[in-house]
């Protein structure tokens, strides 16, 4: 797999994690847990933004791998 594909895959895994954390935060009745899930979700969001930026860079540098 190319670098671009790897980054893409990681990005979608992160998206999945974010969605699951969000659903856990809503579903649990333990406030501490809900808070922890929510905070982790925000961290994942930041990482996702960085990774997205990197993905764009890769696509500009090596357009042949764009998908």
């Amino acid at each position: 797999m190319t670098v671009a594909a790897n980054v893409n895959q990681c990005l979608s895994t992160l998206k999945g994690i974010e969605a699951q954390l969000s659903s856990l935060a809503l579903n649990t009745s333990v406030p501490e847990a809900s808070k922890a899930f929510h905070e982790t979700m925000l961290v994942i969001g930041e990482i996702k933004a960085d990774l997205k930026k990197r993905k764009m860079q890769i696509e500009i540098e090596e357009p042949q791998y764009k998908n």
């Binding site: 670098v3 895994t13 994690i17 994942i44 990482i47 960085d50």
Partner: peptide, 30 residues
Amino acid sequence: NKCQADLELFSLETESPDAKKMYNKNATKL
């Protein structure tokens, strides 16, 4: 854990110093 390992791997693979720094930062954060 998988994502964290991926980020560390990316930081080892890339040749751009900026990207390396970004990957490292995010791996630690995660």
